[in-house]
Design a protein around this nucleic acid. Structure first.
Length: 432
RNA sequence: UCCGCGAUAGCUCAAUGGUAGAGCAUUCGGCUGUUAACCGAAGGGUUGUAAGUUCGAAUCUUACUCGCGGAGCCA
């Protein structure tokens, strides 16, 4: 019995007979020679079936294989520069495992609606598989970064009794006899409790926004990583953010060069992602907009087009800090030098990918925080536990949130966030 | 919620008031080195739904449904 192997490991088996299992990616035929392209999840392999080299039954099996039929193939591994992946299998045996009848996704182009409807099958394509492998490596890089620096993974609840920031529309559900509960839009408030207990923590999980956003930069369900660090001020927070992004991007472009090549991503732009990142204030951002002919009123939040203009001035992510407090969340600390400003920072990715990080130094003064909750018309009773963090040994602290899909989308050079997650959830779609 | 665009074969598209077509997929035949292989043949349609204009509507008008893109909101 030949050894069972995966396509990615074939280099070790040149000249040996092996058995592989997978699906038929594509098939070409020239009469008495069949070219079966096997896909096993780790790569593609061209398998040659010559009439005369195999039994009539095996040749017939190879002839009848249809796109995405599952099968097992045994043969001799050869180096072959003409074949995809550089190796080829001279088949001696082919066994059908299960047929595939009228596979919907043909080797020609398809529209996005059709592909999303068949997302469960679309995942089998080279491009989608490459994106998901990059997503996986990005997640691992994120976790490695924090784990290696003494952060503790801290899982916040997903069902919460109130709106975290009081602004976004949330998904609502009934929670037994306790009334409505909401799917979390951020684990941050809980992460602050974690930081007071463990010093440095990060949350990493799904978050939910019921906003009727209908753009290529929004999902209703997405993954976010949120570090929170006791005793970090805004500058420390920006130091952490740039070191973090540099590590993640550099690690992924090094480890996933093959998959980025499948996506035809120009990685030279990602190679620039090294600290220090430019740091500009909101006011300086407005100056840039003015120079580019944008008439922007002080006090508004930056829109997508504004972010693109600002980030296009630089060859790496840019950090924009000290926004007008009015457009930011209640828990952000004010700038002691200017009460109208919040000690907030957004990190804008290059190439028009926009805001991938939003963060701030948090308000640590009990009385100020209570007055902010009142100003925002939030129900104080829901924040009692949160205010306790200021009653019992309050310290300066800060953190930020990074959107995983936006980051993956940027690294991969995607034109829509929906390809960066296995099963995207969008305003008009919750299937498959 | 607002603005714009779209819906024709299983899929991607063409046909701009006069017999609804091509490529891919499927089925059959040919080819011993193919690279989204190629060559030949066949089957495949209530043109999103409803109404209207017209001798005649995929095409023009109106409404509706669904989708796509963008704005706002944000990661």
């Amino acid at each position: 019995m030949a050894q069972k192997v995966y396509i990615k490991d074939l280099a070790e088996y040149v000249g040996k007979e092996v058995t592989l299992k997978g699906w038929l990616h594509n098939k070409r035929s020239s009469g008495k020679v069949k070219f079966l392209i096997l896909r096993d999840g780790s790569g593609l392999l061209q398998c040659i079936v010559f009439k005369g080299n195999v039994t009539e039954e095996v040749f017939d099996t190879a002839d009848k294989l249809t796109q995405e039929s599952s099968f097992e193939v045994t043969g001799l591994v050869k180096e072959e520069p003409r074949a995809v992946g550089g190796y080829e299998l001279d088949a001696t045996d082919v066994k059908l495992i299960a047929p595939s009848v009228d596979y919907p996704i043909t080797p020609k182009e398809h529209g996005i609606e059709f592909l999303i409807d068949h997302r469960h099958l679309w995942l089998r394509s080279q491009r989608q598989a490459a994106i998901l492998r990059i997503r996986h490596r990005t997640i691992k890089a994120i976790r490695d970064f924090f784990d290696d620096r003494g952060f503790v993974l801290f899982d916040p609840p997903i069902l919460t009794p109130n709106a975290c920031e009081g602004t976004s529309t949330l998904f609502e559900t009934e929670y037994f006899d306790l009334g409505p509960a909401y799917l979390t839009q951020s684990g941050q408030l809980y992460a602050e409790a974690g930081a007071m207990a463990l010093g440095k923590v990060y949350t990493f999980g799904p978050t939910f926004r019921a906003e009727k956003s209908k753009t290529r930069r929004h999902l209703t369900e997405f993954w976010m990583v949120e570090p929170e660090v006791a005793f970090n001020d805004l500058d420390d927070n920006m130091d952490l953010a740039e070191e973090f992004l540099e590590y993640v991007v550099q690690t992924v472009i090094k480890e996933k060069a093959d998959d980025l090549k499948i996506l035809e991503r120009d990685v030279t732009k990602l190679e620039n992602v090294k600290h220090p990142f430019p740091r500009i204030s909101y006011d300086e951002g407005l100056e840039i907009l003015k120079k580019n002919g944008v008439d922007f009123e002080w006090g508004n939040d930056l829109g997508g087009a504004d972010e693109t203009i600002i980030s296009s001035q630089y060859d790496r992510p840019v950090m924009v800090h000290r926004y007008p407090a009015e457009v930011k969340a209640f828990y952000m600390k004010r700038d002691p030098k200017n009460e109208k400003l919040a000690l907030a920072v957004d990190v804008l990715a290059p190439e028009g990918y926009g805001e991938i990080i939003g963060g701030s130094q948090r308000e640590d003064d009990l009385d100020l925080l209570i007055s902010r909750i009142k100003e925002h018309n939030l129900p104080q009773e829901f924040f009692d536990w949160y205010l306790d963090l200021r009653r019992y040994g309050s310290v300066p602290h800060s953190g930020f949130g990074l959107g995983l899909e936006r980051t993956v989308s940027w690294i991969c050079g995607l034109d829509h966030l929906r390809e960066a997650i296995p099963f995207p959830r969008m305003i008009y779609r919750n299937t498959p």
